[in-house]
Each structure stands twice: as structure tokens, then as C-alpha cells.
Design a protein around this nucleic acid. Structure first.
Lengths: 192, 192
DNA sequence: GTCTATAAATGGATAGAC
DNA sequence: GTCTATCCATTTATAGAC
């Protein structure tokens, strides 16, 4: 992957998290990067190509993140803490305008091409598997307590964080902090 | 409000919940309603006008729903059940393609006009107040148990449902059912 | 209230020179 | 790899007849 392509993807990721895939244009990117739209089309002929590369990158990133967690050899509790911190950071960047790119794309599922939907689904599954593992091990180790299946609780947890990030754009970052606090309660943890 | 305006708003609401506010056009509406774009502009000169009327309608609907809950004189538990059922219905309509219009607009917050953001914030607050009341009374009556502030748990619960609806578009309606089940656990309730 | 016609702007995409 | 120029479709919006 060329340097330039990386640059483009970085800005595109930021735009997806702020305005959504359908609502940003090659023109927006060209202004940010200081090159023309035509040049952008050279690197990513169709917007769909850009979207797919973006999702590939997100998948790589998540898988890497997942490996980091597994190798941390830390307690599941510390790992969960790191997971929460990761999401906290998304919205504390800038003026709390960004949301999780996953939820941004989910909201646009009926607008993006099928190929992107397929990749998004894979990305979702990686995320779900990661949190499910985390909760399973947390419960097995006795650090966490909750009822029901780990995978179900994992989806609830992810949904809550993703939703909280959306709410935080109107209502401030406390929404995210409070939601994380409540989520810890649901795992039998004592916040802070 | 004229009959026609109501019709337009109905279809617009559906489009917001499926593709989002920015991604539907007056052309889409004209096809659904069998009238021209120009006629639509007669009723709602600017798209922003349409968006504002839509939000007004959603606010009215929520407030009415809230009154219904309060007058139900039923247990908070039954009221919560009705609340969950309401959201379940959104995504069981059609082929699980619709999401909560609130979350659709939240995802587009940086794209919609400021006037719409303001109204959306009000709508969010009504929703939060409703669920907060519900949980407060549920805990007071001894039917529900949870730690932390009611309003914080309420935001977590709303975020989780909203997020689950988004996930369900890729992963099926079970996601919503499972999330509701886990949310009940977090309230010390025994599902089903 | 609804129509035809049209303006003005935007967005995705391509051709071809450098 | 980047540019200028251009094409075509879409979208918001308006003017004015019926």
C-alpha cells in the first residue's frame, strides 16, 4: 500500500466517522489532501473501492487489536478497561463529533454497496468475538458476574457503547462515561 | 396539518429510518406518493422544513406515548415491556431494514442543519426522561434492581436498544431479542 | 395543489496531456 | 501520479401556467 493511499484512507476514515460514507465526497478529500479529485480516482477508481479498502484496514486494525488483547496476559478486567478506553478516545478526539465508524456504516447499510455490507458484517463479527471472549474469560476467572450467554451480553455491551457515542454528539461526553460506568455494574464490577 | 402533508411525513419518516435523512431525495418521495417534486416543494419548500416537521411529529408522538405509559396505571415492569415491544416492532416491520429514526439522525448530526439538531436534542431528552421515570419507579416499587443513577442506566438502556437495532440490520432480529433479554437481566428481572 | 420546465450546484467518474 | 477539462446523473429549489 503506497504512502499516498494510506493518507487518503486516514482522511476517509475520519470523514466516515464524522459525516458518514455517503455524505463525504471526493471533493472533501481533495481539499484535505491538496490534490485533485482526478488524482484520487487514480488511487481509488470508484468510491466503492475506497470503501472496501477502508473496511479492510478496519478489519486488520481490529484483528491486530484483538491479538494485542490476547497477548496482554493481563486480567480480563484490565483488558475490558482497555477496550472501554479505546472507545472513549474516539469521541474525546476533536469536539466529540466522531462516532464509531462501525455504527456510522451500520446506519447507512441500505445506502452502501453490497460488497461493503459483506465486509462490514465480518468486521462486526470480529468485534463481537473479541468482547465475547473477554466476557467469557472474565466470568470464568470469577472477576465478572452476569446472567445469560456471553455472546448476548457482548452484543448488548457493544450496542450500548456504540449508541452512547452517538448520543454523546448531542449530549456531551459524560453520556459515554456514565454508560461505561453502568456497563461495569452489569458485570458485577465496582466502577473506578 | 393537511392530509397530504401527513402522507408526505409518513413516507419521509420511513425513508429516514431506512436510508437516512441525507440519503433520501424529493424524487424518492415523489415516486412513492405519485406527485411531482415541485408539488412536494409546495408543501415543504426546503428539505429542512420537512425535517423540522418530521421532528415535531416525532416529539408529539413520543410525548403522547409517554402520557399513555403514565396513565397505564400498570406496573413499571409492564410498561417497560411495552417500551421494548415498541422497539421490537420497528425492526420486525419489513425485512428488518429500519432502525430507530433517532439513531439515524444522530448518525447524521454533522450533516443536518442546526435547527434540526436542536429539535433532535429535545427528542432525545424526552426519551431519556421517559425511561428514567420508568426505571426510577421500577426500583422504588421493588420490581427492579440496579446500581447507579436511574438516568445513567436509562441512557445505557436506550443506547443498547438503538445500537442493537443497527446491528440487527446485518445480523438478524435475534440480536434485538437477545439484547432485550440481557437488559432485563441488568434490571434484576427474569426474562420471559 | 399540481403540473412542466428549468436553473444552479454537486458528486462520481473518465480522457488524455504532462 | 498528478493535472485540466469535461461528461453525465442527481438533487435541491424556483418560476409560472393550469
Amino acid at each position: 500500500m503506497s504512502e499516498r493511499k494510506q493518507q487518503i484512507l486516514e482522511h476517509a476514515a475520519e470523514l466516515v466517522a464524522t459525516v458518514g460514507f455517503d455524505s463525504f465526497s471526493y471533493h472533501d478529500l481533495s481539499e484535505r489532501l491538496g490534490i485533485t479529485k482526478a488524482s484520487l480516482h487514480h488511487h481509488f477508481p470508484k468510491k466503492e473501492d475506497l470503501g472496501l479498502s477502508l473496511l479492510d484496514q478496519m478489519i486488520d486494525f481490529k484483528e491486530q487489536k484483538r491479538d494485542e488483547f490476547l497477548q496482554m496476559a493481563d486480567t480480563p478486567l484490565k483488558q475490558l478497561e482497555a477496550y472501554f478506553a479505546f472507545y472513549r478516545e474516539i469521541c474525546s478526539d476533536g469536539q466529540c463529533l466522531q462516532i464509531c465508524p462501525i455504527s456510522s456504516l451500520q446506519a447507512e447499510i441500505n445506502v452502501i454497496p453490497q460488497s461493503m455490507r459483506d465486509k462490514l458484517k465480518i468486521l462486526d463479527e470480529i468485534e463481537t468475538r473479541l468482547v465475547t471472549e473477554l466476557l467469557t474469560r472474565g466470568r470464568d476467572s470469577g472477576e465478572m458476574t452476569f446472567s445469560g450467554e456471553s455472546s448476548h451480553h457482548a452484543v448488548m455491551l457493544i450496542s450500548a457503547i456504540i449508541g452512547a457515542l452517538q448520543f454523546s454528539r448531542s449530549h456531551g461526553i459524560e453520556v459515554v462515561d456514565n454508560t461505561i460506568k453502568q456497563l461495569k455494574f452489569t458485570l458485577g464490577l465496582n466502577p473506578e
